[in-house]
Amino acid sequence: MSSIGLTLVGLALSLGASGTAAEVVAVVSAKSPAVMLSKNQVVDIFLGKASRFPEGRLAVPIDQDEGSAARDEFYATFAGKSPAQLKAHWSKIIFTGRGQPPIAVPNSIDVKKHVAANPNSMGYIEKDLVDSSVKVLLTQ
């Protein structure tokens, strides 16, 4: 391969590696009494292992559609699961009749709207979308 070809390959690899995902945070409505949750508590709610906030209120997780960058980042960072592992997890839960995955909306803006309107909801959005309508429970 020529030195120009090697340079172009190196440039392409460095550009691909420098594209970092936006920081994703778990959020609830600004009206929610929830203050702070551990990483495990957040993950348990999103994976169907818990259905209530620690103080006993029903927890309604709002997921994002499969393939969304925020969803992939959230599950990789918080649960240590790839999209394939997440799909396998929910297939097992559904097959055994132990639950259903969270409702999913297309993007972080829709998550924020759902969460802001319902104090029992919890979702995840990019940190730069946080405003006074939601509060952060947990960051990466």
Rank of each mutant, 00 (worst) to 15 (best):
S2V: 00
S2A: 09
S3H: 11
I4T: 11
L8D: 01
G10T: 08
L11A: 05
A12K: 00
S14G: 02
G16L: 14
G16D: 04
A17T: 10
S18I: 12
G19Y: 08
G19I: 13
E23S: 08
V25Y: 01
A26C: 05
A30P: 04
K31G: 13
S32H: 09
A34R: 03
V35P: 00
M36T: 14
M36S: 15
S38Q: 09
K39L: 08
K39T: 09
K39R: 15
Q41L: 02
D44I: 03
F46I: 03
L47Y: 06
G48K: 02
K49Q: 13
K49L: 12
A50C: 05
A50L: 08
A50Y: 06
A50M: 07
S51W: 06
R52F: 04
F53S: 01
P54R: 09
R57A: 15
A59V: 10
D63I: 06
Q64N: 07
D65E: 14
D65S: 14
D65T: 12
D65G: 10
G67I: 07
G67W: 04
A70H: 00
A70I: 04
D72R: 10
E73A: 15
A76K: 15
G80P: 01
K81C: 05
A84F: 12
L86E: 08
A88C: 08
A88F: 12
A88N: 12
A88V: 05
H89G: 11
S91E: 15
I93G: 04
I93R: 04
T96V: 13
T96L: 15
T96W: 12
G97S: 08
R98P: 01
G99F: 05
G99Y: 11
Q100H: 14
Q100A: 14
P101E: 11
P101A: 10
P102W: 11
P102A: 09
I103N: 13
A104V: 07
A104N: 05
V105T: 12
V105I: 13
V105K: 03
V105M: 08
D110A: 15
D110R: 15
D110P: 03
K112F: 03
H114R: 13
A116R: 07
A116P: 10
P119Y: 02
P119K: 09
M122E: 03
I125V: 14
K127V: 07
K127Y: 04
D128P: 05
D128V: 11
D128T: 13
D128L: 09
V130M: 06
S132R: 10
V134A: 01
V136Q: 01
V136C: 02
L137K: 00
L137P: 06
L138P: 05
L138N: 03
T139F: 02
Q140I: 06
